[in-house]
Design a protein around this nucleic acid. Structure first.
Length: 927
RNA sequence: GGGUGUGUAGCUCAGUUGGGAGAGCGUCGCCCUUACAAGGCGAAUGUCGGGAGUUCGAACCUCUCCACACCCA
């Protein structure tokens, strides 16, 4: 074996072997266990969040597989309508053409081409990450099977009246020319203005204070072209007399009524609100209540259309805004302009300001779907982890708007609806079916709806459509009700909720029993990783390493603004002056698992990764030690006699506890605790203590063959079990090592992937051994503490005396002399009987027993006094606190007996300790 | 404005039904001891955001205030 752990050389060949041997496919006939991957955007690449989720999913899947379940981890990708179409359109723009120029068919060919080109990136990344997905089952949301399921669902929902077509106000992206759902709109506060316009009252009407106009305030002046009312609060005295009268709309010349509506806030602005039903969601509602005309003043590009005075027609909305404000001013009707912070709705894709726009779209009426979806979570059929997220889910589900599912795009599932020449539409799987279903003769010309469905409409069917639905296939029965969904909280609404609704509706099953919500990975400063900030880390760069120049280039590539690129470069160079080292997949995966504590935000810290890379190296080197001492020697595989040492019995007992801690952590989805338990056991018990304790046995010339075999057997068996225990989180390293270790432990198998997952065996717990080793560690640590504090070189052998010990102490000393000599580097150990003289010594306490390190020639008097004082202070402080408790009558009377007894015992121990330390201090002082 | 979450060692975070404040990284000291310097041994470090309450006892439960983050309107 190499002297240090070199991940690069072991990982790729191992994955290839796993894949070639088809270990990832479901096998056996255990209970089914499945996870459906949240399908990533097919033309994208995996980021840290994916790496995080995949690490957890793979850990779950690998453990389940090792537990003998029939496991399926279903891979696949999503066609990501808008995102993908935008990428390809950008490519076309670079070639000076557009999708319209190409035409729909040619354009789609281009998209498929691009998909073929970039689609492999993600699967390559997944292989590097070690994902044990069943590649033979890989699906794409535009696969024929998926498309069929999408059509089926659409038609059935339409036939049931759940899908309908209607004219509604939608969020319109004027650049992409498509409707988008509420969820795709990001509203953030921006600096803007509140313009106050004077609207002259018609027919000589006057306000209460004698003015011939009223003032309305608006953040979007251009919409005034479509005003169809002015509203005031019904109980607003200022305007009560004006309700029912009219104003004359400036620039337009239309007379519009003044109406009263509860929606109006008297306190905001002037208390008068202009109402533009066709261009504002609130106004739209009010328009419906008051039966106001809906005057659309925009085109698809958000320019002013023909419904407006000629002067403004064809102007862009923002240009029109300027002109209209200027015109108001010229008319003396601009009352004032205030600075104003407002939420500006922007499209998630492309950042364009979104317009509420009146169009015909397809909708899903979600009410009937939502009810069972809420119940499934209420009654526990589906559980969120952490549970907190159920509230988020409920609050959204209980206030659900109908879902606009049509998109004016070309890339996606084209809507299975056909129009005749009169614009009447018919819904069915394909044209022939439609003709038959609606008895339409060949003379009726039909054209299919141009629009496509929202991407989330198809991904909502993911768990069952990937398993062959609507056919009742074997896979469908086994796996479509998956065990866990692992995803981020940002798509609870987009995806999780919609999957639950659709799956319940069409299969009567839940899509998953548990939703495990991960935190969001942020950079080391806590900022969200984003391309524009240039703080994105590619998980592959952590695995393979990257030099600083390549990293800078990668982060600044394709940035629109040179100024940003400069900043990104500067930050990158200061954060990673030397680039990033290659840490390997296992270290990354283990790190990510160790961060999965259920928190919302996770700051990713390279130091943490380095620490776990070192852990991998520790395992590697511990293995080297074990192999050196066991290979080609009898390790008890064939049943020869063995005698177990105290250390052997102890580490076996500790292993059981580690196994139960890890299993419990998995069962409660606490991957951080599982990682911690593995780390703690391997490093601080197996390496720090057990390996050291094995040396005195293995190096003892007088050891019997049974003793040697016993220790060798324990060395390999415990290591082998640990490898299986750790495998789901660090698959490559454990596989690599396991092939050398397993035969020595008498375990056979082609791969650790299919070996059994360790379960604790309580019969192997050994409390006596644990107590004995605790004692042993106490003595060794006491001596080491004196060495450390007194600057006695570790190489200097010591002569130790034990005083005031019990019979049990004496027995333990005699039984463990070899261990003590080796681990504390001792020359002699002397047991003092009562009355025996002891030289002046530094003292460590182990229970009542004193461990004495003679000072002569080694220890300075003052130094020992200082050390003693420190110990005394510490013990005294503890003692005071406990005495305080015990002297409190209520505590003694009301606290449980066991608690009181425990405190009493502690108090006694501390009193004794302080007394002994004081005694020791006095005798040293008297020197 | 409504809601959710977070605040524990210099940093990143654990803390399981309320009962002795922990880990990793970093820091300091000593050591290349035949697995490992990506290491070993030892040490230091906390008003558990502030305040109040419940309780014999609060990092943990209740209230309140402060700071930060996110979601919704």
């Amino acid at each position: 074996m190499e002297k240090t752990y070199q991940p690069q050389s072991i990982e790729a060949p191992i994955y290839q072997r796993w894949e070639e041997n088809n270990y990832f496919a479901p096998s056996g006939n255990g209970a089914p266990f499945s996870i459906m991957i949240p399908p990533p955007n097919v033309t994208g690449s995996l980021h840290m969040g994916h790496a995080f989720q995949h690490s957890i999913m793979d850990a779950m899947i690998r453990r389940a597989r090792m537990q003998g379940k029939q496991t399926l981890w279903q891979p696949g990708s999503d066609h990501a309508g808008i995102a993908t179409q935008m990428v390809v359109e950008r490519q076309l723009a670079a070639q000076n053409t557009t999708r319209k120029e190409l035409g729909r068919e040619k354009f789609l060919e281009k998209v498929w081409e691009w998909k073929g080109q970039s689609g492999g990136t993600i699967s390559d990344q997944m292989r590097v990450l070690g994902d044990s997905v069943d590649w033979s089952k890989e699906r794409f949301t535009m696969d024929p099977g998926m498309s069929e399921a999408v059509q089926e669902v659409f038609v059935r929902l339409y036939d049931e009246g759940i899908i309908y077509r209607g004219q509604r106000l939608v969020n319109w992206d004027p650049k992409l020319h498509t409707a988008i759902s509420d969820l795709e709109v990001i509203s953030e506060e921006e600096n803007g203005f509140l313009w106050h316009f004077r609207y002259p009252l018609a027919d000589g009407a006057k306000t209460a204070d004698g003015k011939d106009y009223i003032v309305v305030a608006t953040t979007r002046p251009e919409t005034m072209l479509g005003d169809s009312a002015v509203a005031v609060a019904p109980d607003d005295e200022r305007y009560q007399d004006l309700v029912g009268k009219e104003i004359e709309l400036p620039l337009v010349g239309r007379k519009v009524p003044i109406i009263a509506d509860d929606y109006v806030d008297k306190e905001f602005g002037t208390g008068c609100v202009k109402i533009t039903p066709a261009h504002d969601f609130n106004d739209y509602e009010m328009g419906k209540r008051h039966d106001l005309p809906m005057i659309n003043i925009l085109t698809d590009d958000a320019s002013i259309n023909d419904n407006s005075p000629e002067k403004y027609q064809g102007m862009d909305r923002f240009e029109a805004r300027k002109v209209i404000v200027a015109d108001f001013e010229a008319l003396g009707l601009l009352d004032k302009i205030d600075d104003h912070k407002l939420k500006v709705p922007r499209s998630e894709r492309g950042n364009t300001v979104v317009e509420p726009y009146l169009t015909n779209q397809w909708y899903v009426a979600v009410e009937t779907l939502a009810k069972p979806a809420i119940e499934a979570v209420e009654n526990g059929d589906i559980q969120f982890v952490p549970k907190q997220w159920e509230n988020t889910y409920f609050s959204w589900m209980r206030d659900l708007q109908d879902w606009c599912i049509s998109r004016q795009l070309w890339w996606g599932h084209q809507i299975p609806a056909w129009y005749d020449a009169q614009g009447k539409f018919y819904v069915g799987k394909d044209e022939a079916t439609v003709r038959e279903k609606y008895s339409l003769g060949d003379d009726v010309e039909l054209t299919q709806d141009e629009d496509v469905l929202d991407t989330w409409f198809s991904s909502a069917l993911w768990t069952f459509a990937t398993q062959g639905w609507p056919e009742e296939t074997e896979e469908f029965k086994l796996f479509s009700e998956s065990d866990v969904l692992v995803t981020g909280f940002d798509i609870i609404f987009f995806w999780v909720a919609r999957m639950i609704m659709m799956t319940l509706k069409f299969t009567d099953k839940v899509p998953f029993k548990t939703v495990y919500i991960t935190g969001l990975i942020r950079d080391e400063r806590g900022d969200k990783m984003s391309k524009s900030k240039g703080n994105v880390i590619d998980p592959l760069d952590l695995i393979n390493g990257i030099d600083i120049e390549s990293l800078v280039q990668k982060r600044t590539y394709g940035m629109m603004q040179p100024r940003l690129a400069e900043k990104v470069e500067k930050n990158t160079r200061s954060a990673y002056p030397e680039g990033i080292q290659a840490y390997g997949t296992d270290a990354l995966r283990f790190t990510l698992c160790s961060l999965a504590s259920g928190g919302r935000d996770i700051k990713f810290d390279l130091n943490r990764l380095e620490g776990y890379r070192n852990f991998c190296n520790k395992i590697w080197n511990a293995t080297r030690y074990v192999l050196m001492n066991t290979e080609e020697k009898d390790c008890g595989q064939s049943g020869s006699d063995v005698e177990l040492s105290l250390a052997d019995r102890w580490i076996i007992s500790r292993l059981q506890q580690a196994e139960s801690a890890v299993n419990k952590a998995y069962d409660t989805h606490r991957y951080d605790l599982a990682a911690q338990a593995l780390y703690e056991f391997m490093w601080h018990e197996y390496c720090d203590w057990y390996l050291e304790l094995s040396k005195p046995v293995l190096w003892d010339e007088n050891a019997t063959e049974a003793q040697l075999t016993g220790t060798r057997r324990t060395l390999v068996r415990v290591l082998e079990a640990f490898l299986r225990l750790a495998h789901p989180m660090m698959p490559f390293l454990t596989e690599e090592i396991w092939h050398r270790v397993a035969p020595l432990a008498g375990v056979e198998g082609e791969t650790i992937m299919l070996a059994s997952y360790p379960e604790a065996d309580d019969s192997k717990l050994d409390h006596d051994a644990e107590n004995d080793v605790e004692w042993l560690k106490g003595v060794i640590e006491g001596i080491r503490n004196i060495r450390g504090e007194m600057d006695i070189a570790p190489s200097k052998p010591l002569n130790i005396l034990f005083r005031n010990g019990s019979e049990q102490d004496k027995a333990r000393m005699l039984a463990n002399t070899a261990f003590l000599q080796k681990l504390a580097k001792l020359e002699t150990l002397t047991w003092l009987e009562k009355g025996d003289e002891a030289p002046m010594s530094a003292t460590a306490l182990v229970g009542d027993m004193e461990v004495l390190v003679p000072m002569a020639g080694l220890i300075d008097k003052d130094a020992e006094l200082a050390r003693l004082q420190k110990e005394i202070d510490k013990a005294t402080k503890d003692l005071q606190r406990i005495e305080g408790k015990l002297s409190n009558e209520s505590f003694v009377a009301k606290a449980p007996e066991a608690v009181v007894a425990k405190e009493r015992a502690k108090s006694d121990d501390l009193k004794q300790a302080v007394a002994k330390l004081e005694e020791q201090k006095v005798s040293i002082e008297s020197l």
